[in-house]
């Protein structure tokens, strides 16, 4: 027992030094290891290293596409300017498909921090050379064109639905095969199990560079670094999707509190440390804040609701 006590005291001394009141607590509504968790922890590092905040804690609340974390955040953090939550486009879909009682309208969005284009790719030996070929094959027989991508109702699924709709094909007829995790979908594409694949561009780029896959298009309105694949828009399909990640503050803040949080995040996003961290992780800087972000968010929620209804995932 005595030894335990001494060890405990030693630990206490070790731990007590840097630990003052936390300036920010960032909720990552996902398990440790995923994208939102990585975003939260990168923010934690940069906020502390740049001296914007003395102490930042990350709290993981995983589950149901982030909606469990969101619900807990809205209930527990209301009016508390030290609480932040990380989220992303996936949440928009998850809120709808899970019929979540809490939505993004219940938090105070601060800024979009980073984002990635969704890429459409085929195996290198596929006869389909362009996105036009793929769409025509789908028009001829939608069932015969199988798509491998991420979870049902996620950003990949939504993008295929939007593409079908833009091309005048019935979105309920797409043969979308959901895989858990990017790895399995990628293996299905490389193994020639499916016609085409759809996933984050970063996931396909190493394969494209190695010559095992061919990128047919990217989903953003501008071309994506690292690939010369055309955008869907320049190929004639009116689709613009970015799989973004954002940070939001608690509901019920005063305008002053909200401005203070926004200023801290802006300082973070402008810092050299943040740029360096983005470069290491291979994330694109798609910072967008204030009114512009709020308007963009509202537009996306509307478009997503419509497409999820079209593909039959939301009644």
């Amino acid at each position: 027992m005595m030894r335990h006590a001494i060890f405990g005291a030693a630990l206490a001394a070790l731990a007590a030094a840097p630990a003052w009141a936390a300036d920010y607590t960032i909720v990552a509504p996902a398990a440790p290891g995923g994208g939102w968790d990585a975003t939260a922890r990168t923010m934690q590092e940069v906020l502390q290293a740049e001296g914007i905040s003395g102490s930042v804690q990350v709290q993981n609340v995983p589950g149901a596409g982030g909606t469990i974390g969101l619900a807990q955040f809205v209930a527990g953090a209301a009016g508390d300017p030290t609480q932040l939550i990380v989220g992303g486009y996936v949440m928009v879909g998850a809120i709808l498909t899970n019929a979540s009682p809490v939505t993004l309208a219940d938090v105070t969005p601060i800024a979009r921090l980073t984002g990635e284009a969704v890429g459409i790719a085929v195996k290198a030996d596929s006869p389909l050379q362009t996105i036009g070929d793929l769409v025509e094959a789908m028009r001829a027989d939608p069932g015969a064109v199988s798509w491998a991508g991420g979870s049902a109702g996620g950003v990949d699924h939504i993008t295929v639905g939007l593409l079908a709709k833009a091309a005048g094909i019935d979105p309920t007829k797409i043969n979308y095969i959901a895989f858990s995790g990017g790895g399995e979908a990628l293996a299905a594409i490389l193994g020639g199990q499916v016609t085409a694949g759809i996933s984050g561009v970063g996931e396909f780029l190493p394969q494209v560079q190695a010559g095992t896959m061919r990128m047919l298009a990217v989903s953003t309105d501008v071309r994506w670094p690292g690939t010369d694949a055309p955008t869907l828009m320049e190929s004639g399909y009116d689709v613009n999707v970015q799989n973004w990640r954002m940070v939001a503050a608690a509901p019920g803040l005063t305008p002053e509190q909200q401005a203070a949080v926004a200023a801290d995040i802006e300082r973070m996003a402008g810092s050299a440390g943040w740029k360096a961290a983005l470069a290491t992780r291979g994330w694109a800087d798609t910072y967008l804040a204030g009114e512009a972000f709020a308007a963009q968010l509202a537009r996306e929620i509307e478009a997503t609701t419509a497409i999820l209804k079209d593909v039959g995932l939301v009644q």
């Binding site: 206490a12 731990a15 007590a16 630990a19 003052w20």
Partner: peptide, 9 residues
């Protein structure tokens, strides 16, 4: 309270 007491906030 105990954790805060021993290890600080």
């Amino acid at each position: 309270p105990l954790e805060t007491l021993v290890f600080g906030g």
